[in-house]
Amino acid sequence: MSSSTDSPTLTTETTQLSPQPDTETAKPTKKITLKSSDNQIFEVEESVAMEFATVKSFFEDSPSTDTVPLPNVTAKPLSQVIEFCKEQIKFKANPDEAQKKKYNAEFVTEKSDKDLVDMIPVANYLEIKDLLDVLNQAVADRIENKSVEYVRSFFGIDNDFTAEEEAALRREHAWAYEGVDED
């Protein structure tokens, strides 16, 4: 075996060793290459790439391609998005709503604010509805009951209002702020 140069045979053997050798796992899985804007290469299984509606339609139009350039997506959020989609595929094969909910909650909890916010445009661009929903809700939860000043510093947003405009909005919304903690 050590002298064997026939690696495809080895792969087949490994597949057969798996506890449930159903047709699904025995079939050689096609890999698709995704290339981020910072030229990182991600090889993912076809089923994962098909979770990205944008990539899916690209393949439907030109089935012979195997590399998809993603010039608007950087490596870090892309790798996180891939990680999420890999898990979702497992849940698709083996539905367990409670487990899925738990995974989705943990996925966002462990991410930094910047990671979450950086993934949103990627999820939108790749059209991954479930992820977009999870991410948007997570960011919404992080700013629940927070003050204007908190949100500005939380997201590094410049206050571009004039003092008059700001005062006018304050007056208009005054009713909502009675007794709000400034955190």
């Binding site: 950086d118 948007n136 960011v139 919404a140 500005r152 947003i157 571009d160 209002f161 405009e165 909502a176």
Partner: peptide, 22 residues
């Protein structure tokens, strides 16, 4: 990305967000 989040906010947070910036 934060513009995408607006649709997920409740009244109080929408009011807060509209005071954050133009």
């Amino acid at each position: 990305a934060l513009f995408f989040v607006l649709a997920y906010l409740d009244v109080f947070e929408l009011l807060v967000m509209s005071e954050v910036c133009m």
